[in-house]
Lab assay of single mutants.
Amino acid sequence: MAAAAAAGAGPEMVRGQVFDVGPRYTNLSYIGEGAYGMVCSAYDNVNKVRVAIKKISPFEHQTYCQRTLREIKILLRFRHENIIGINDIIRAPTIEQMKDVYIVQDLMETDLYKLLKTQHLSNDHICYFLYQILRGLKYIHSANVLHRDLKPSNLLLNTTCDLKICDFGLARVADPDHDHTGFLTEYVATRWYRAPEIMLNSKGYTKSIDIWSVGCILAEMLSNRPIFPGKHYLDQLNHILGILGSPSQEDLNCIINLKARNYLLSLPHKNKVPWNRLFPNADSKALDLLDKMLTFNPHKRIEVEQALAHPYLEQYYDPSDEPIAEAPFKFDMELDDLPKEKLKELIFEETARFQPGYRS
């Protein structure tokens, strides 16, 4: 834990890192770190609560700039109880001085990944967590956004079992017609939660990839272990087919990539493993919904509104309290091709509203 900075004593240090967030945020305490930044909790002297502050230093890398800009653009436009918001952003007053960006968010005690390492969940908890994931996802999908990296560590939890989806750095506007060349190379989302079509096709992607990830998360809540822990690309596919069985001819016809289709045709026939054999203690309604989410063919996979209306979630289902976005989200430009200098300018502009004396 960093010592509390005395008023006016300059930035606090946390594990050798400068955290320049005073005077409003003090009493910093280390939480963890990701690929390009550290997260601390801090005391907000204005709202009198502890908050989470993520320090991001992305400006050396085009990919990190892209992810940072995506996350900020999306989260500043989203407003939903099951999606983490941005409360404040701290950065230098000029673009030349801006080396880091500090993002202030609600402090959540833990995440689903940490929880599943230590606790076996009751059916009631599984049901409530799944409902909140789908409630947040309904809003995301209504904005025409794909999260693309749903996994237990991106689901934040607090002691009252509130759940918030975080990390929109890989999110995209849904565009089933656009052929994202190089899709697989830039697709760094965790393999275990990846839909089979991501490994088999490169053309376009749809909201059904997020539903697949939610199915993987439900299976993990039922058993405290990942359902498809593939060691590499082909191993991942083999794990999936080992449980779902061989795809039907109709399902194979959806695979545009001939090499991928021929690979699947070359494999020995596998039978589907019954879900109640894998999860003998699970609620039968939970397994019915799991089956509809972990469907090989993305066109037959359940959609988020149908999933919310499934009998497993009937005690929570309330369409009048499951809000959607006001308007579909649009990125003005494809960020993939922009140089990091341009992305830095866009991050600077996007964060201006939090600067003292800002006038829109």
Score class of each variant (00 low, 15 high):
residue 3 A to D: 04
residue 3 A to H: 14
residue 5 A to C: 07
residue 5 A to S: 03
residue 8 G to N: 14
residue 9 A to Q: 06
residue 9 A to N: 15
residue 10 G to H: 13
residue 11 P to F: 15
residue 12 E to A: 09
residue 13 M to D: 06
residue 15 R to C: 12
residue 16 G to Q: 08
residue 17 Q to D: 11
residue 17 Q to V: 13
residue 18 V to C: 14
residue 18 V to K: 09
residue 19 F to C: 03
residue 20 D to M: 11
residue 20 D to Y: 00
residue 21 V to L: 01
residue 23 P to H: 01
residue 23 P to R: 14
residue 27 N to A: 11
residue 29 S to M: 12
residue 30 Y to L: 04
residue 31 I to L: 09
residue 31 I to S: 12
residue 31 I to W: 08
residue 32 G to Y: 04
residue 33 E to P: 06
residue 35 A to I: 03
residue 35 A to F: 10
residue 35 A to W: 07
residue 36 Y to W: 12
residue 37 G to W: 05
residue 38 M to I: 00
residue 38 M to V: 06
residue 40 C to H: 15
residue 41 S to E: 13
residue 42 A to S: 02
residue 43 Y to Q: 14
residue 43 Y to C: 06
residue 43 Y to I: 13
residue 43 Y to N: 00
residue 44 D to S: 12
residue 44 D to G: 10
residue 44 D to E: 00
residue 45 N to Y: 02
residue 46 V to P: 13
residue 47 N to A: 06
residue 49 V to T: 12
residue 50 R to I: 15
residue 51 V to R: 15
residue 51 V to I: 06
residue 54 K to Y: 08
residue 54 K to F: 07
residue 55 K to L: 08
residue 55 K to C: 07
residue 56 I to M: 11
residue 57 S to M: 07
residue 58 P to M: 15
residue 58 P to A: 13
residue 59 F to E: 04
residue 60 E to I: 15
residue 60 E to S: 14
residue 61 H to G: 08
residue 64 Y to Q: 09
residue 64 Y to P: 10
residue 65 C to H: 11
residue 67 R to L: 11
residue 68 T to D: 11
residue 69 L to D: 13
residue 69 L to E: 13
residue 70 R to E: 02
residue 71 E to Y: 13
residue 71 E to N: 10
residue 74 I to V: 02
residue 77 R to W: 02
residue 77 R to H: 12
residue 79 R to E: 12
residue 79 R to P: 04
residue 79 R to V: 10
residue 80 H to T: 13
residue 81 E to W: 13
residue 84 I to R: 06
residue 84 I to M: 12
residue 86 I to D: 11
residue 87 N to V: 15
residue 89 I to C: 14
residue 89 I to E: 09
residue 89 I to M: 12
residue 91 R to V: 12
residue 91 R to G: 14
residue 92 A to E: 15
residue 93 P to D: 12
residue 94 T to P: 02
residue 95 I to W: 10
residue 96 E to H: 15
residue 96 E to K: 02
residue 99 K to S: 07
residue 99 K to V: 12
residue 100 D to E: 02
residue 100 D to A: 05
residue 100 D to F: 13
residue 101 V to E: 00
residue 102 Y to T: 05
residue 102 Y to S: 06
residue 103 I to N: 02
residue 103 I to V: 09
residue 104 V to C: 14
residue 105 Q to D: 09
residue 105 Q to V: 13
residue 105 Q to K: 00
residue 106 D to V: 05
residue 107 L to F: 09
residue 107 L to M: 03
residue 107 L to E: 10
residue 108 M to C: 12
residue 110 T to A: 04
residue 110 T to Q: 06
residue 110 T to G: 11
residue 111 D to H: 08
residue 111 D to I: 10
residue 112 L to Q: 00
residue 113 Y to A: 10
residue 114 K to T: 05
residue 114 K to P: 04
residue 115 L to Q: 00
residue 115 L to V: 09
residue 116 L to C: 10
residue 116 L to N: 10
residue 116 L to A: 07
residue 117 K to F: 10
residue 118 T to H: 11
residue 119 Q to L: 02
residue 120 H to A: 09
residue 121 L to K: 06
residue 122 S to Q: 09
residue 125 H to F: 05
residue 125 H to A: 02
residue 126 I to Q: 08
residue 128 Y to R: 10
residue 130 L to V: 12
residue 130 L to C: 09
residue 134 L to E: 02
residue 135 R to P: 06
residue 135 R to G: 12
residue 136 G to K: 04
residue 137 L to A: 05
residue 137 L to K: 05
residue 138 K to E: 03
residue 138 K to L: 07
residue 139 Y to I: 07
residue 139 Y to C: 03
residue 140 I to P: 05
residue 141 H to C: 09
residue 141 H to S: 10
residue 142 S to Y: 15
residue 145 V to L: 01
residue 147 H to W: 03
residue 147 H to C: 06
residue 148 R to A: 02
residue 149 D to V: 00
residue 149 D to F: 05
residue 150 L to D: 03
residue 151 K to D: 08
residue 151 K to E: 02
residue 152 P to Y: 05
residue 153 S to E: 11
residue 154 N to Y: 00
residue 155 L to D: 05
residue 156 L to E: 02
residue 156 L to Q: 00
residue 156 L to C: 07
residue 159 T to D: 08
residue 160 T to F: 07
residue 161 C to H: 11
residue 161 C to L: 10
residue 162 D to Q: 15
residue 163 L to S: 06
residue 163 L to H: 07
residue 164 K to L: 07
residue 165 I to E: 04
residue 165 I to R: 04
residue 167 D to V: 00
residue 168 F to E: 04
residue 168 F to G: 08
residue 173 V to L: 01
residue 174 A to G: 08
residue 174 A to H: 11
residue 175 D to K: 07
residue 175 D to M: 06
residue 176 P to I: 06
residue 176 P to Y: 05
residue 177 D to C: 12
residue 178 H to S: 05
residue 178 H to G: 07
residue 180 H to D: 03
residue 181 T to F: 09
residue 182 G to C: 06
residue 182 G to V: 00
residue 183 F to M: 09
residue 184 L to D: 01
residue 186 E to S: 07
residue 186 E to F: 10
residue 188 V to C: 03
residue 188 V to H: 05
residue 190 T to H: 06
residue 190 T to F: 04
residue 191 R to D: 03
residue 191 R to H: 04
residue 191 R to L: 00
residue 192 W to E: 02
residue 192 W to Y: 01
residue 193 Y to L: 01
residue 193 Y to S: 02
residue 194 R to G: 01
residue 196 P to E: 01
residue 196 P to N: 04
residue 196 P to W: 02
residue 197 E to M: 03
residue 199 M to T: 11
residue 200 L to A: 06
residue 201 N to Y: 01
residue 204 G to N: 13
residue 206 T to Q: 03
residue 207 K to P: 03
residue 207 K to S: 03
residue 208 S to R: 14
residue 208 S to P: 03
residue 211 I to D: 01
residue 212 W to I: 01
residue 213 S to E: 05
residue 214 V to A: 09
residue 216 C to H: 02
residue 217 I to D: 03
residue 218 L to H: 09
residue 219 A to H: 03
residue 219 A to R: 01
residue 220 E to P: 03
residue 221 M to T: 10
residue 221 M to I: 00
residue 222 L to A: 03
residue 225 R to H: 04
residue 226 P to Q: 05
residue 227 I to W: 03
residue 227 I to N: 02
residue 228 F to T: 11
residue 228 F to Q: 08
residue 229 P to R: 05
residue 230 G to E: 13
residue 231 K to P: 09
residue 231 K to W: 14
residue 231 K to C: 10
residue 232 H to P: 02
residue 233 Y to H: 00
residue 233 Y to S: 00
residue 233 Y to K: 02
residue 234 L to W: 04
residue 234 L to G: 05
residue 234 L to D: 07
residue 235 D to H: 07
residue 236 Q to Y: 06
residue 237 L to Q: 01
residue 237 L to K: 04
residue 237 L to W: 11
residue 239 H to R: 15
residue 239 H to E: 08
residue 241 L to Y: 07
residue 241 L to Q: 15
residue 243 I to H: 08
residue 243 I to S: 03
residue 244 L to G: 04
residue 244 L to K: 08
residue 245 G to E: 03
residue 247 P to K: 04
residue 248 S to Q: 09
residue 249 Q to P: 08
residue 249 Q to S: 14
residue 250 E to I: 14
residue 250 E to S: 14
residue 251 D to A: 02
residue 252 L to P: 01
residue 252 L to A: 07
residue 254 C to P: 06
residue 255 I to A: 13
residue 256 I to R: 08
residue 257 N to W: 02
residue 259 K to I: 04
residue 260 A to Q: 12
residue 261 R to V: 06
residue 262 N to G: 10
residue 262 N to W: 10
residue 263 Y to K: 06
residue 264 L to D: 05
residue 266 S to E: 12
residue 266 S to G: 00
residue 267 L to Y: 13
residue 268 P to D: 13
residue 268 P to A: 10
residue 270 K to V: 14
residue 270 K to P: 09
residue 271 N to I: 00
residue 271 N to R: 07
residue 275 W to D: 01
residue 275 W to G: 03
residue 277 R to F: 12
residue 279 F to I: 00
residue 279 F to Q: 09
residue 280 P to A: 09
residue 280 P to V: 08
residue 282 A to G: 15
residue 282 A to H: 15
residue 283 D to Q: 14
residue 285 K to I: 00
residue 287 L to S: 04
residue 287 L to F: 09
residue 288 D to C: 14
residue 288 D to K: 09
residue 289 L to D: 05
residue 289 L to Q: 01
residue 290 L to Q: 00
residue 290 L to V: 11
residue 291 D to W: 05
residue 292 K to C: 10
residue 293 M to C: 12
residue 294 L to H: 06
residue 294 L to A: 02
residue 294 L to F: 12
residue 294 L to I: 10
residue 295 T to P: 00
residue 295 T to K: 09
residue 296 F to Y: 01
residue 297 N to A: 12
residue 299 H to Q: 04
residue 300 K to D: 09
residue 301 R to F: 07
residue 302 I to C: 12
residue 303 E to L: 15
residue 303 E to R: 11
residue 303 E to I: 15
residue 303 E to A: 11
residue 304 V to I: 08
residue 304 V to M: 09
residue 305 E to V: 01
residue 306 Q to D: 13
residue 306 Q to K: 11
residue 306 Q to Y: 15
residue 307 A to C: 15
residue 310 H to K: 06
residue 310 H to I: 03
residue 311 P to D: 13
residue 311 P to K: 11
residue 315 Q to L: 01
residue 315 Q to C: 15
residue 315 Q to M: 15
residue 317 Y to S: 10
residue 317 Y to I: 12
residue 317 Y to T: 12
residue 318 D to F: 14
residue 319 P to H: 08
residue 319 P to A: 11
residue 320 S to G: 10
residue 322 E to K: 03
residue 322 E to L: 14
residue 324 I to R: 13
residue 330 K to V: 11
residue 330 K to N: 04
residue 331 F to K: 15
residue 331 F to A: 15
residue 331 F to D: 09
residue 332 D to Q: 10
residue 334 E to G: 10
residue 334 E to K: 01
residue 336 D to V: 01
residue 338 L to K: 09
residue 339 P to F: 13
residue 340 K to P: 08
residue 341 E to T: 13
residue 341 E to V: 03
residue 343 L to R: 07
residue 344 K to H: 09
residue 345 E to H: 14
residue 346 L to V: 10
residue 346 L to D: 06
residue 346 L to N: 09
residue 347 I to Y: 05
residue 347 I to P: 04
residue 347 I to E: 01
residue 348 F to A: 12
residue 348 F to N: 10
residue 349 E to F: 15
residue 349 E to W: 15
residue 351 T to E: 07
residue 351 T to H: 14
residue 352 A to W: 13
residue 353 R to F: 13
residue 355 Q to C: 14
residue 360 S to T: 07
residue 360 S to G: 07
